[in-house]
Amino acid sequence: MSSGKQITRVTLFKIPDPANQEKLANIYKEMPTKAKKDGKPYIVSVKAGPTIEDQRNQGYTLAAVSTFASLEDMKYYDTGCEAHDALKVEAKKMHQGILVVFYESSA
């Protein structure tokens, strides 16, 4: 996965309370400017919002799609990013399940 292609990460949450869904979505939307690596923003983009009610969503009520320039940047997001650590603290207070997948995509 080091071919220079961007990494797209999809995170799904089971959050029953719509107010908490909105709260976490807003935290996600701040990530491109709050998350820093070597003092600079490093996340390419983030989109987040509540899912549309549908039998196929299997109870997942919030989706977040984050794009990173590299797998290395996404790994930093998981292990070294203070802004992401703060997001995880908030998410743990409200979610009842989480699913994370990522893939290499065209730039």
Rank of each mutant, 00 (worst) to 15 (best):
P16M: 11
E104G: 12
E82W: 00
A64T: 02
K34G: 00
I27W: 07
I7D: 00
V89G: 05
M74C: 09
R9M: 04
K37R: 15
A48W: 06
K75F: 01
G97L: 06
S45N: 10
I7K: 01
L62P: 06
K47A: 09
Y77I: 12
K29C: 08
I43G: 00
C81H: 11
L62A: 06
N57C: 04
K34N: 14
G80R: 11
S2I: 03
S105A: 13
T51N: 15
N26F: 05
L71D: 12
G59S: 03
I43A: 02
I43M: 09
S3L: 12
G49H: 11
L12Q: 08
Q6F: 09
G39K: 12
A64E: 05
G4I: 04
L62K: 04
A25S: 14
C81Y: 08
E90Q: 12
P18T: 06
I98A: 14
A64Y: 10
E104K: 05
P32R: 13
Y76W: 11
H84E: 14
V44G: 00
K88T: 15
E72F: 04
L87I: 15
G59H: 01
V65S: 02
K92G: 10
E90H: 06
K34T: 11
N20I: 05
S3R: 01
Q58P: 01
D73T: 14
F13E: 02
A91C: 13
L99S: 13
M74S: 09
R56T: 11
T67W: 02
P50K: 09
G49Q: 11
K14I: 13
D54Y: 02
M94R: 13
S2A: 06
R56E: 03
K75H: 08
F102G: 05
G4F: 03
A69N: 15
R9P: 03
Q96M: 11
A83I: 06
D73N: 13
N57M: 03
E104A: 13
V10F: 07
Q21T: 10
L62C: 11
N20G: 12
C81A: 06
K23C: 01
C81D: 15
D78M: 10
S3A: 06
Y77R: 11
A25Y: 06
I15E: 03
N57L: 00
Y42A: 07
A48T: 07
V65I: 15
Y103P: 00
V65N: 01
V10E: 02
R9K: 08
V46H: 10
S66R: 03
P32W: 05
G39A: 07
N20R: 14
C81F: 06
G97Y: 00
K5Y: 04
K92E: 12
F102T: 06
K47R: 12
